[in-house]
Amino acid sequence: MTNILAFAESRNGELRKVALEAVTAARKLADATGGEVHALVVGASGIASKAEQLAKHGADVVLVAENDAFANYNPEATSAIAADRLKGGGYRVAVFATSAQGRDLAPRVAGKLGAGIVTDVIDVALNGDNLTVKHPMNIGKLVATISIQGSPAIVSLRPNTYSPVENAKAGRVENVSAPADAASSRVVVKDLVTGEKGKLDLAEAPVIVAGGRGLKAAENFKLVEDLADAFGNAAVGATRAVTDDGWRPHADQIGQTGRLVSPQLYVAVGISGAVQHLAGMRTSKTIVAINKDKDAPIFKVADYGIVGDVFEVVPALTEAVREARKGH
């Protein structure tokens, strides 16, 4: 029971950043057990070409399940493949991402195996045979240290908590056969409607610029978009006040009932800092807040605050960020 399985999430034939995060965390665990990292990647034909990237981040073995029924996420077949592999034995831990796909997949696998599962994990450690994880509870106001009994244990990592680290291994490729009825899954993803091409997602962006009701109207989100654009590697987020009013889609909402993010830099523009919003972003590395009310709660969590009118400060900041990045 020394090997670690890392599920390598992909979409449209490309690995997601969380795939490399899972492999990185698995590598850390395998170094503790003295076992191997097996990265499992599931996709349409061609996905095998991603093996090299997984090996580079620490996979000893890359398990490839290629089938055109896997062009879109196929929850039933994917969970069956992962569970079958884990049933085969030898695995101490299976590592998933707490992404939309991982939230769906990891509990299915746990259910099939009757395995112990903890999701949304910000730290995972093996001491001897003792597996413990850290898991935020009560919208991040508490953190639990949890032990998981039995092998395999299922964990899913909060995105952006393990930065991908290169640690090249052999990356021997092994093909895994898909279940015979892969194409006849009961649940079928008929369509994947993608947003603008090249737009960074909140879970992957190193920088997030988020706007709140302080922007006053939907069209003023242009200020937020321009600032995100100036950073070059930023995604745009919003508060519930804003998504409720339809200024931004619900998918952009950060907080208790929206997305959980932890970017390198979070810029809060015209956001008061309600607890339900903080729940989704308080683990960001650096937080900047711009608000005209010096007593706004957002300033309590912000590393750097500017008290001022967003309509004055944001354009100036956008200009200055553009200028600062020119030198790079």
């Binding site: 395995a115 112990g116 599962i117 903890v118 413990t132 935020p136 509870m137 991040g140 106001k141 508490l142 953190v143 639990a144 240290t145 949890i146 032990s147 998981i148 009994q149 039995g150 244990a153 308080r282 937080i287 300033f299 309590k300 969590v301 912000a302 590393d303 750097y304 605050g305």
Partner: peptide
Amino acid sequence: KVKIEKIELPPERAAG
């Protein structure tokens, strides 16, 4: 199969 060993308050963010 999972057991809470400890619950803590998260580390406070250093005052900004």
